[in-house]
Design a binder for these strands. Structure first.
Lengths: 194, 194
DNA sequence: CCCGCTATTAGCACTTGGTACTAATATCAG
DNA sequence: CTGATATTAGTACCAAGTGCTAATAGCGGG
């Protein structure tokens, strides 16, 4: 026997959250109350009906699928670029980018933003990373916005190489520094993997 | 006027595939036939009804989400691990991991595999990357399997530091080498971001 | 021109998982 | 005991179907 209405509604919310595919009837059995009570509860909590819940999940997926491909091409959003000179991108850290335990952004996302900016700054169709040195200076948490600034610091055209330095900040505080040795592909595919 | 039944059914299949959220009524308008005809078509093509279609999309997401969290937690699949000593993971490069133009894997995926392996090898709940040096030696293409081997090469317990070297190979050929300076978090959250 | 065949359309009963609403009953507090 | 709140019951109705039967349309052959 569940006690109060409040308790039941809290549990109900959780239960539906955990499994949006549950019907009112199943819930009524779970909480040992009538279907009508479940419905009243859902109304008070403004939880939509089963089919609407499923639809929302489905729509979300569907949109995610459509969106995720282009987003993957450049990690973060480039807001300014001067080819072969400098470039800036921003990246908003969301819950899916952090470790569950401590909410700290996983390193590869910082790297990904910096590396794709380094690729983008190269005034060439195909640029690959050859070497890289990274410093993770401060943890970044979900909700923060990372601003990455890339600068070409050296050019070696005869060797098809360029050196790019990327400094990432959150609220003007430097959180990451990376240097990238980039290779300009001409017609071959030798050199590296990134 | 659409011509044959065959043509209509082909178009129908495509239309539903593109937008699973369409009702029979909307389809009947689109193809200028009766709702019943649409239903007969769906039966012949064994296309389930709207609500079932939506459910499938939703279930897929849901399962993906449940799966993707652990998957995201470690990039690649760990196949062997001796904490504080060495670890091995594999990562299958899929089309979504490569540049469209040249099919070469983007650097941050190689980094992500190596970095998460370095995090995993640390015999501690919370480990963060402080510094890193990377060499991308050869391009990796879609369809290839990257085997990453991580080894702890130095320990500095007094400074909460450990140094991990990761060598990634494809068919026994080294494609990537990375060294990671790792920080063991005790109770603070200072140090870095990955 | 009618026969046979497929394709299409129509109509009805029924299903799920609800909403919206009304009304009765239970429970508990003052 | 009275009132307020909570719960249950019951009805009509809806969307988007399934399942089934039956009527009709169109066309090709003989």
């Amino acid at each position: 026997m569940k006690r109060t209405k409040r308790e039941r509604q809290t549990a109900l919310k959780e239960s539906i959250n955990e499994n949006p595919f549950v019907t009112d009837e199943e819930l009524s059995a779970e909480f040992d109350v009538s279907v009508q009570t479940i419905r009243l509860d859902r109304m008070e909590l403004s939880i939509p009906e089963l089919r609407e819940r499923i639809k929302h999940v489905a729509v979300r997926t569907f949109e995610d699928e459509v969106k995720s491909l282009p987003i993957d091409e450049v990690i973060g959003e480039i807001i300014d670029i001067e080819l072969d000179e400098k470039a800036i991108s921003i990246f908003d850290v969301k819950p899916e980018h952090v470790f569950q335990r401590n909410q700290i952004a996983r390193g590869h996302h910082l790297f990904a933003q910096a590396n794709s900016l380094a690729v983008a700054i190269m005034n060439e169709d195909l640029a690959l990373t050859v070497k890289s040195e990274l410093q993770f200076l401060r943890p970044v948490k979900a909700g923060q916005r990372i601003v990455a600034k890339a600068t070409v610091i050296d050019r070696q055209p005869e060797k098809n190489r360029a050196f790019v330095k990327v400094v990432s900040t959150v609220d003007q505080v430097t959180v990451f520094i990376g240097t990238f040795e980039m290779y300009r592909m001409t017609e071959q595919s030798e050199g590296e993997a990134g």
